[in-house]
Simulated assay, not measured.
Amino acid sequence: MDLGFGREKRLLTPQQFKAVFDSATHKVSSKHVLLLARDNQLEHPRLGLVIGKKSVKLAVERNRIKRQIRESFRHNQSILTGVDCVIVARRGIADLSNIELRQQFDKMWKRLARQRLAADQANSTGQTNA
């Protein structure tokens, strides 16, 4: 499995972000973060980050948070195939240590994977009854 984070693994255009915001099929949230996701038709997941100056004042902190999120995403992308994710940071996220950030995101990816699995199972059982 390729653990890289090349251009193909990123949401790059405003349209790609808008698609996730407008039609997110999955939501995972915590006190500091909102994760929105929707299925894409690709074999790999893609990630977009929204970490504004309003929620994290210092550029050095925003960059640290992005680094931790990307690293966690890289290590968990095997359970996230075929999904576009947008992470929206909330106030207070800068107070978390690197370890706390990684733990929180590792949990969020697993919650998202479970949500998607449950939705897939519900869809497949719903189709057999029809």
Rank of each mutant, 00 (worst) to 15 (best):
residue 83 V to N: 09
residue 75 H to I: 09
residue 114 R to Q: 13
residue 23 S to I: 00
residue 59 A to H: 01
residue 27 K to R: 14
residue 13 T to A: 06
residue 120 D to Q: 11
residue 96 L to W: 10
residue 42 L to S: 15
residue 31 K to D: 13
residue 33 V to W: 07
residue 101 L to Q: 00
residue 51 I to N: 07
residue 59 A to G: 02
residue 96 L to M: 04
residue 96 L to P: 03
residue 36 L to V: 02
residue 80 L to M: 05
residue 105 F to S: 05
residue 19 A to G: 14
residue 120 D to E: 05
residue 104 Q to P: 06
residue 114 R to W: 12
residue 120 D to L: 08
residue 29 S to Q: 11
residue 102 R to T: 10
residue 62 R to Y: 00
residue 102 R to I: 08
residue 44 H to V: 10
residue 84 D to W: 05
residue 127 Q to D: 10
residue 10 R to W: 02
residue 63 N to G: 07
residue 105 F to E: 07
residue 27 K to H: 12
residue 87 I to P: 03
residue 88 V to L: 09
residue 1 M to T: 13
residue 86 V to D: 00
residue 91 R to M: 12
residue 7 R to P: 03
residue 110 K to C: 10
residue 2 D to K: 11
residue 129 N to D: 11
residue 29 S to R: 07
residue 17 F to L: 05
residue 36 L to G: 02
residue 7 R to W: 01
residue 72 S to N: 08
residue 92 G to P: 01
residue 57 K to W: 00
residue 45 P to R: 12
residue 4 G to R: 10
residue 33 V to M: 03
residue 126 G to M: 02
residue 5 F to T: 08
residue 128 T to K: 15
residue 87 I to W: 06
residue 84 D to V: 07
residue 1 M to E: 11
residue 40 N to C: 06
residue 42 L to N: 15
residue 118 A to W: 00
residue 31 K to A: 15
residue 105 F to I: 06
residue 112 L to I: 02
residue 54 K to Y: 07
residue 114 R to Y: 09
residue 81 T to R: 15
residue 122 A to M: 06
residue 9 K to Y: 11
residue 50 V to G: 11
residue 12 L to G: 02
residue 111 R to Y: 11
residue 58 L to C: 11
residue 115 Q to S: 06
residue 73 F to L: 04
residue 4 G to P: 03
residue 21 F to P: 03
residue 98 N to C: 13
residue 13 T to K: 15
residue 116 R to H: 12
residue 110 K to Y: 04
residue 120 D to M: 08
residue 69 I to M: 06
residue 59 A to P: 00
residue 27 K to Q: 11
residue 47 L to H: 12
residue 15 Q to R: 15
residue 66 K to T: 03
residue 81 T to K: 13
residue 109 W to N: 10
residue 71 E to G: 05
residue 5 F to R: 02
residue 123 N to S: 15
residue 81 T to Q: 15
residue 129 N to T: 12
residue 117 L to V: 03
residue 29 S to Y: 04
residue 58 L to G: 10
residue 85 C to Q: 10
residue 5 F to A: 01
residue 5 F to G: 03
residue 72 S to K: 08
residue 52 G to M: 03
residue 10 R to T: 05
residue 70 R to F: 00
residue 129 N to P: 15
residue 75 H to L: 13
residue 20 V to E: 07
residue 42 L to F: 04
residue 80 L to K: 09
residue 6 G to V: 04
residue 126 G to E: 06
residue 54 K to L: 02
residue 31 K to G: 14
residue 19 A to P: 11
residue 19 A to V: 07
residue 18 K to D: 12
residue 112 L to K: 06
residue 53 K to Q: 08
residue 101 L to I: 02
residue 92 G to L: 04
residue 109 W to T: 12
residue 38 R to N: 04
residue 70 R to P: 12
residue 13 T to R: 15
residue 32 H to M: 13
residue 94 A to K: 08
residue 108 M to A: 09
residue 41 Q to W: 07
residue 56 V to D: 00
residue 9 K to M: 13
residue 71 E to H: 13
residue 99 I to C: 13
residue 77 Q to L: 01
residue 84 D to R: 06
residue 95 D to I: 10
residue 125 T to V: 14
residue 2 D to S: 07
residue 24 A to V: 02
residue 71 E to T: 05
residue 118 A to R: 09
residue 65 I to E: 09
residue 84 D to Y: 02
residue 54 K to A: 00
residue 3 L to A: 14
residue 24 A to Y: 06
residue 38 R to K: 05
residue 41 Q to G: 07
residue 12 L to N: 07
residue 48 G to R: 14
residue 74 R to D: 05
